[in-house]
Design a protein around this nucleic acid. Structure first.
Lengths: 119, 119
DNA sequence: GTTCAATGATAAGCAAGGCTAACTATCCTT
DNA sequence: AAGGATAGTTAGCCTTGCTTATCATTGAAC
């Protein structure tokens, strides 16, 4: 089974929320990503079936090693891309939004080239 | 009614084929975009319902003013983005592929910043 | 201790985009 | 004229991802 594009977003967001708040619940993910509760519920089911996350008895969400690795990768990409865009004059808000879409699209080669450029 | 992302690709490709060959038929679009004939058939139906294209009695495809305007915009973006990527060291092949995905996603602001950078 | 709000899960369904299989129509060739 | 290839269409279905409506659980507050 593949990792879906949306799954990458969910994992990244779980990682970010964990950094921010120390814990993660479905409702936080829903609010943060602007999606409905059932969307998150379903996504979490998929993610735990494929062992990217676990949910404990109190419904707290935890990233597995596998999940954490993907989450970190996406997060790094997102931050780097946003930083690069800002460095060439894009406003912070737009930079983060565009980086979020670009992170799924661009190849490793283009990402590396942009990263090199930033220096 | 909105213009779908896929519609933008179809319009752009019709424009490119017109430039290359002087005329456009469904089968050319299918080959060029690597999609099936029914996919093109359905897309053309949608595009003509919304007056982005017309099809004459011989099944030749023509862009309307509305369609041409979008097609040109996407084409310009695609070419500019590819050029920019190549200028920072991305290989031609990857540059065109990544540009094709990026052209749908990035904001006008980011596009302008990248364009300015290229000079 | 009952009521109410918040959280999570289930069911059903929609939208965008694609596919294969099978049909039609047309044109070229023998 | 009969076949066969090419082009386009129709029908039916799959996948990703989302939605609303509804139900269950739980915890807090009166």
């Amino acid at each position: 089974m593949n990792i879906y594009e949306s799954s990458e977003d969910y994992l990244e967001r779980i990682y970010m929320l964990k950094l921010e708040k120390g814990y993660v619940k479905s409702i936080d993910v829903a609010k943060c990503l602007n999606v409905s509760k059932p969307s998150v519920s379903f996504a979490m089911k998929q993610l735990s079936e494929n062992e990217y996350i676990t949910m404990d008895e109190n419904k707290y969400i935890h990233l597995t090693d596998k999940g954490l690795s993907i989450a970190k990768t996406m997060y790094d990409r997102h931050m780097s891309l946003a930083k690069i865009l800002m460095s060439i004059g894009v406003s912070e808000d737009t930079a983060y939004k565009d980086a979020c879409k670009m992170e799924h699209d661009i190849s490793e080669e283009t990402y590396a080239a942009l990263k090199a450029l930033a220096k």
